[in-house]
Design a protein around this nucleic acid. Sequence first.
DNA 1: TACTTTTTCGACATCGGTGTCAATTTTGAG
DNA 2: CTCAAAATTGACACCGATGTCGAAAAAGTA
Lengths: 233, 233
Amino acid sequence: MTPQGGNDTESSGATVTTLAGRPEVLSSDGRGATTLSPKGQRTRQRLLTAARAVFERDGFLDARVVDIATEAGVAHGSFYTYFDSKTEIFRSVVADVMSLVWHTRTSTDGDPDLSPYQRIERANRQFVRVYRENGTMLGLMEQAMTFDDEVRQLRLMVRQRSVERVRLNIEQMQKEGTVRGDLDAFCASSALVSMVSNFVYFWLVMGEGDYDDEAAVHTLTQLWASALGMKID
Amino acid sequence: MTPQGGNDTESSGATVTTLAGRPEVLSSDGRGATTLSPKGQRTRQRLLTAARAVFERDGFLDARVVDIATEAGVAHGSFYTYFDSKTEIFRSVVADVMSLVWHTRTSTDGDPDLSPYQRIERANRQFVRVYRENGTMLGLMEQAMTFDDEVRQLRLMVRQRSVERVRLNIEQMQKEGTVRGDLDAFCASSALVSMVSNFVYFWLVMGEGDYDDEAAVHTLTQLWASALGMKID
DNA sequence: TACTTTTTCGACATCGGTGTCAATTTTGAG
DNA sequence: CTCAAAATTGACACCGATGTCGAAAAAGTA
């Protein structure tokens, strides 16, 4: 709902976070300037809810506008009063999920006095939790990214944010001597973000492996910390 | 062309490799029992070549049977003499690419007396090279995996092989004491395979970052080795 | 050459999802 | 209550890709 376009789906051990908003990429309040009465708002919301259900059930490609409308209890013609196309409503749904995820992420972002290792662990745990709850939609985002330019932009932005955050963190630790200095921080942060996000994707969306949440988080965190040459608590 | 269905697209530092074939998943020689004269063979091959070009140019979804036929210089009706659908020819193309990749991978697989670190480095280097040459098709495979069951099965099998190989290698190193014993070898191997393959995917297919090949390989290898607590040469 | 088999062709029918629109109903303000 | 704006409806036209099919051409065989 918020104009805030991105989130921090990717895991990260970083703490230095700029919550400063980015330019609005996705708006969930469609229909350019048309007024939209209370009733209209409700109908629009019903369509969004229905759309998410249909997308999660059928996937983006097999989802039909007709099904979304039916699921929302309106004639399929009404759909076009609120959205221009299937793609548009999909982007809105994604934006809403992202906004939720982002909120979840940042709401617990205040970094207490945890050790670097613990911060990474917490970030990974949170990532797994969010993926458990929104895995289907996040998976759909991966799907849509491969053929929809706008979704791809969003996806890349989300990833970029995560990588950036991790990078800053790594660089800071390098200054502190907590992490080896001879390491391309940017490349390394990309790789580590890939490690976590893609592992969880195959695990929770593609059904590879059958781990206990805590065990997986633990292993991921260990690998992450070791890779950076950090001391493990 | 070989019935060998999979490959080892994913990176791996493992050496213990079973080349034993898996049950045939994809066959590139379509058309059930129909004979197929020399001329037919040629036309079929032309269609395959054209298909790869069109897929790489337009992506799987936007590619049209008509375009493939035109590109191959045949009437679009002729297409159906050799393939049942766009999906079927796509699977054939993927199978061919995979077979090529697999061949490349295994042909240089004889492990000389390289150190564990060097073996990992070489595997990563090879992975990057192969991805540079076949990135578009490998990216398309990622795309198709998200909505085609058969492609997904193939993709998962490919990944599974890589993970398996890495896992065996990790376990062996754990016995030798080269790698920390307190580590879920399966989980870790999945994560490391994700690290490399997803990083390279974002790098070479999605255009994230702008690395020098050797630099990227070096960083990846360092992270990999460090993550496992290996000594670095 | 005569005949069969295989290949090629391209017009055509089909099909299902998309998006439009004019008519109708509902809402809400005066 | 009255009227204008907003919302709803569902039939309909559109579109483009898919897949079919009968006929014609080419290749193979004797």
